[in-house]
Each structure stands twice: as C-alpha cells, then as structure tokens.
C-alpha cells in the first residue's frame, strides 16, 4: 500500500534521514521506534509532505506522493495525528471533528462518523461543546485521533500518541488504535518512543537509529530481541 524507497531528508545541511526504506501493506499496524532524534517524526513529516524529501520515492497505492503538497496527500486518504496533538484550541470538540472532515462533502456519512468516534471515545461525546483547549492531555489526544479518523483515512499516521500521558490512558488509546485497525481495516503507521507498547499492538516494526533503519522484523520477534530489549525496552 505504502512504499517508501530510499528516501533522504535534509534540514539545511544536516541529513536527518539516510536511505530509509519502509513497506506497509494494507491492514497492517506498522511501528517505527527509536530514540530521541533518530528521525522518527521526520520520516512521518516527509511522508505527509510537510518536510520535503531530497531523494528517493514514496508511493501510495502506486501513486508517487513525495513531491505533492500536504493537502493533496490528505485527499488521497492519508491522515495524520501530529506530534503534540495540535488540536484547534478555540474550536469546540464538535468543530474540531468537523475540521477533520474538511475535504468531505457527504453530510450524512460525516454524521455517522461523528457518532462512531463518540462511541470510541465516550468522553468526547460528554464534552462535545467544550473548547478543545480546555480538555486534558489525554482527552486532547483522543480528539486528535478522532479528528484524523473523521477524514476516513485508509492510512492513519500517528506521531507519538503516548506523549505525556498517564499509563492508563496510553493503554486505552492503544486499545482504540488496535480496534480501529481491526474494525475498519485502517492501515496504521505508528511512530513511538514507547517501544514496549507499540510493539505489543503492531504487526511489524522498524527500528530507527540516527537516521537509518537498523533493524526490521515482526513485532513479537523485535520484542524478544536482546538488542532491542537493551536499547529501547529498558530490560
């Protein structure tokens, strides 16, 4: 579904990504783990066109997207949950969700999808008229995920959904990600620092080290891998 081939990305003169190659098939949960500054978020931002790629190609369902504008990429069915949530603080929960469906025109389906995300996160339904900025961190993350789902993506990109959240909430959010993947066959590309949690729900994983993919395998094998354990799982 998504084929990232040998991409390199630069910030000025500094090379952030070196020849990254990632394959994502439909219906999978893929996770990209790595330490701070390894280039996880850069990979994701290159993918959605916010940071331009210098070389290599990104194909989504056979279509080259590495030179496209971010808004075009969203319209192809890739939607992202940006790092640090980035909800619209002055818009209500409901309006935030409507913004997620910005490119869609099918009112009835949008309404159904709103009910769907309210079912996923009952907390949001309770707070639908509250301003986004007044929600707690966990609720904001739920809103950010719901907002991305409102675009009915075929590929959902998540950038550190566990950032700054309590373990219980993280568990809940990861359960939902898994549920969304199973129920709608939404492909998920998950960038995480919390390697343990991410590998538990993912099918396959990639390990990123200073801009290079150092390892890739099935998630359960990575979980059992001694090097990964030492470096990222703290065991």
């Amino acid at each position: 579904m998504l084929k990232i081939k040998n991409i390199s990305t630069y910030y000025g003169n500094i090379q952030a990504l070196k020849d990254i190659t990632i394959d994502v098939s439909e219906g999978e949960i893929i996770t990209l783990i790595g330490a701070n500054g390894a280039g996880k978020s850069t990979t994701l931002m290159s993918l959605c066109g916010i940071v331009p790629v210098k070389s290599g190609s990104i194909e989504f369902e056979g279509q080259e997207i590495s030179k496209m504008n971010p808004d075009r990429i969203v319209s192809l069915g890739i939607s992202q949950v940006p790092e640090g949530r980035r909800i619209f603080p002055q818009l209500s929960v409901r309006e935030n969700l409507d913004m997620g469906a910005f490119l869609r025109n099918d009112k009835d389906e949008i309404k159904k999808d709103i009910e769907y995300v309210y079912d996923l996160f009952p907390r949001l339904a309770e707070r639908r008229h509250q301003q986004g900025g007044t929600l707690s961190g966990g609720e904001q993350q739920m809103l950010a995920i719901s907002r991305a789902l409102m675009a009915r993506p075929r590929l959902l990109l998540l950038d550190e959904p566990s950032l700054g959240l309590a373990p219980l909430i993280v568990q809940q959010i990861f359960d939902i990600i898994k549920k969304v993947n199973q129920e709608n066959n939404t492909t998920v590309f998950l960038v995480e620092q919390n390697a343990n949690m991410a590998l538990k729900i993912a099918h396959r994983g990639y390990v990123l080290e200073t801009g290079k993919i150092s390892m890739t395998d099935d998630a359960d094998k990575l979980l059992a891998n001694e090097d990964v354990k030492k470096a990222y799982l703290g065991i």
């Binding site: 808004d71 980035r86 603080p89 002055q90 910005f102 490119l103 675009a151």
Partner: peptide
C-alpha cells in the same frame, strides 16, 4: 488556530 494541524486536515 494552528497552521500545521490545518495542513494535516488537508487544507
């Protein structure tokens, strides 16, 4: 409100 989020919405 937020330009990056705006792009993520496909605007």
């Amino acid at each position: 409100e937020d330009e990056i989020a705006c792009q993520a919405m496909g605007i």
